[in-house]
Each structure stands twice: as C-alpha cells, then as structure tokens.
Design a protein around this nucleic acid. Structure first.
Lengths: 207, 207
DNA sequence: TGTACATCAGTGAACGCGCGTTCACTGATGTAC
DNA sequence: TGTACATCAGTGAACGCGCGTTCACTGATGTAC
C-alpha cells in the first residue's frame, strides 16, 4: 500500500529506540560495562539474538546513547543564549536551560556522567567529541561580543572549557541531590559561575 | 618464636594489599562493576574462595581502594601549601604536587575518575567523603589568611570546592593526555585556575 | 486488482564459558603449659 | 626446651546461573509484473 511505505523500517526504528530507552533505564543503577545484552532485550521483550539487527554490540549502543544525550542538549542550550548580549545573563539563562534539561532527561545525564570517565574508549571519545562541539559553539557565540575584545583565541577557548566543565559538574551534582538540598546546590553553583565571570571581567587588567 | 609475633597477620596484610594492587591494575581498562572477583584472585594467584578472608565483596574492596587513593594524596597536597602565604603561590605548589602524584599513582586516579560518578553508591560515597575532607582542610588553611578577610564561611567553602573540583578535572585530564600534549594541558589548567584566583581577588569589589 | 517472489525483523534452541558462593579440608603459625 | 592443642589463611571441588554468540527458521511486509 502506498500510504504504508516505510512501515517496516518505522517499526525497526521503534524497536531500536526501545533498546536505547531500556538501556538508559537499566543504567540508572549500573554502568554500561556491567549491563548485559540479555538484560536489555529482556526489558524490551525481544529475543537476545534480535539485538544484532540494531547494534553490533553494547559499545555500539553506548555510542548511540552518547550522541542522543548530548546532541539534543547542545542546540537547546545554544538557543537559550541567542540574542542576549551580557555574559552574566547568558550564564543565568544557560543554567536555567541546563537545570530544566537535567530534570527532564536525568537518565541521559546519569549515563553521560557515568561514562565520561568510567566508560570504555569509544564511548568516552563520543562524549568528549560532543562536549568539544559544545565548547567550540560557545566560543564562536562569545567571540563577537564587546566583552571579549582583546581576548586571544586560546584564552577564549580556556574560558569556555571552564564554563562547560562547570555546567557538567552541576548537571552531575543535580542527579544526586535531594529536592530540599537543590536550592542550596544551585545557589552555590551560581556563585561559582559568577566568581568565574568576575575573574573574566578582570582577566585583562593584570598579568 | 618471639621475634616472629605478627608474622601470620603480616602475611595476611600482604595478601590483602596484593588484592588491592591487582584490582587497581585490572581496572586500568575496566570499571569496578565489570571486574570479577575471580579475575582479581587469579591475578594474585590465590583461589577465589580466599578472597572472602579479606573483603566481604568487590564493593568492599572498592571502598578500601577509594580511601587508599585519596587518603594518601590529601596530606601530601596539604603539606605542599604549609607556610606559604599567597594564594596564587599555594595553587602553583598544589598543582605541582598533584601532577607529580598523578604521574606516580596514575592507577589510583584512573580508579577515582572512573568511580566518582560511574561507580556504585557505597564507593561513590567513600570518594565524596574524602573529597569533602580535602575541601574542608583547604578552607581551614585559607580561612586565617588576610586575602580572605571579610569572606563568609559559605563563600570560602564554595571557592574551595571550585578549586578541588578543578584539580580533580586536571587529574582526570592528565590520565588521557599524550606526553607531547601535556604542557599545553597544564598551561590551560594553570590559566583556568589563575582566572578563578583573579575572580577571587575581585569577589568583594562588586555584588 | 491479484499473484508470485524477495526481504528481513524477530524467533527459539543450542553451545561452551566464566561467574559468585558454599563447604569441608589442610597444614603452617601461634599459644599454653 | 618440648608437647599438645587452637587458630585460621588459603585449598579444591562443586553448584546452579546468566552470559554472548551462532544458526536455521518463520511469517509479515514490501515489490514486480
């Protein structure tokens, strides 16, 4: 039937997504390295052998998850800072987007936090590549601003890296905090970012 | 024999240490969660059942490793800043000690980096507790200095936390960097710390 | 529209393997007298 | 010093279990004519 063209591949895509979602769910309490292929297929309700129709192995699935997790955040956080001139305001907005995003996608962030240093090589590489992209985008967006007049490319890069790292630390901390402690955590994180921005403001004053 | 009192427990202690060392070696390329009890005992050359004479399970061993890894660094890095007044100098010295320590104990740091966010609850708790101690020690050492006159306890704490986090990020980055890229990495890390110190200097200037 | 054939996501059984944990044991080390 | 007994780190065999991967297969979906 003409209107059902793509139905079979749509179903395949749905199963693939179900595998990714199931893996993410199971990885709330364990790492990719200790998660078994059979656990994932059992969670989805398919036979273990069917896994191979979608991924070469569990590492392959891990790479797909890393891209999915950070690939969606990057444009969201970039959009949050469009049309805003002042860097303190950019940071405030970015933190807001990040916090909302972590709440809505806490499993993705648990995964990223776990595997950023804990995972196997290829998964770590995929995560670092995404973070590198985010850092470069931030640098590109800040480069044109008056506040950064006179800044070298290197200094701009090191500043953006500092911010991205700090944001990721905040995301990881949000995952473990109790609801009543969250305001305190956010307050401290905001202050740390403000201190960094304060340093940025005076960076060119003295050697 | 009187002179051999303690021989049996010394031997036991030696086997225990061999288990810790073997686990650390095996965890260069995998996480605690995917490391099996049998791998560790095989590496040491004892029978699997003998493991239970030393640890309740692998998590128990992980907790011991976390204490061993950070428990030794903490006093070393604290000693490095004794008798030094200026905070920029304190940071420079601390970084030197950290870099030397990471080079000498890279397996311990690989373990800490992996398990800080990637590990199971009890191991993570042990790591965070050690880091908390390090942060509090730093705060206590800085509290008396003129530079921090007028600082609230909260602000001092958030500043120390920022520094400790930054140092740990540096340690983790050092693990993956190639020897030829290390100078560039250190240069960037030093600059980031200097920017933070710059922010600290002007923190009380404006709201 | 109807028919004959191709594709391929998911099936179900089977395999050999390493795992954590238990248990009764051995024999060297340590202690009491 | 010598003897009899206690301790306990490490042994070796056994268990049931879940694992990743293979394979020939089924049957619904898709395509060509």
């Amino acid at each position: 039937m003409a209107h059902s063209v793509g139905t079979r591949q749509e179903q395949k895509q749905r199963t693939r997504q179900a595998l990714l979602d199931a893996a993410l769910r199971l990885m709330e309490s364990q790492s990719l390295g200790s998660l078994s292929l059979r656990e994932v297929t059992r969670e989805v309700g398919i036979v273990p052998a069917a896994f191979y129709r979608h991924f070469r192995d569990m590492d392959d699935l891990g790479i797909a998850l890393a891209t999915e997790a950070l690939g969606a955040l990057r444009p969201a956080i970039r959009a949050a800072r469009q049309g805003v001139g002042e860097s303190e305001e950019i940071i405030r907005r970015s933190v807001d987007v990040l916090v909302a995003y972590v709440h809505a996608n806490h499993r993705h962030f648990r995964f990223i936090a776990r595997e950023k240093f804990g995972g196997v090589e290829p998964v770590r590489r995929a995560i670092f590549a995404e973070l590198r992209l985010a850092t470069d985008e931030l640098a590109a967006d800040l480069a044109g601003q008056d506040e950064f007049a006179g800044w070298s490319r290197e200094d701009l890069g090191m500043f953006c890296e500092l911010l991205v790292n700090q944001m990721l630390l905040l995301a990881a901390a949000l995952l473990d905090v109790t609801p009543e402690d969250e305001p305190k955590l956010l307050e401290t994180a905001q202050r740390q970012l403000r201190l960094i921005v304060c340093g940025r403001r005076h960076w060119l004053d003295a050697p």
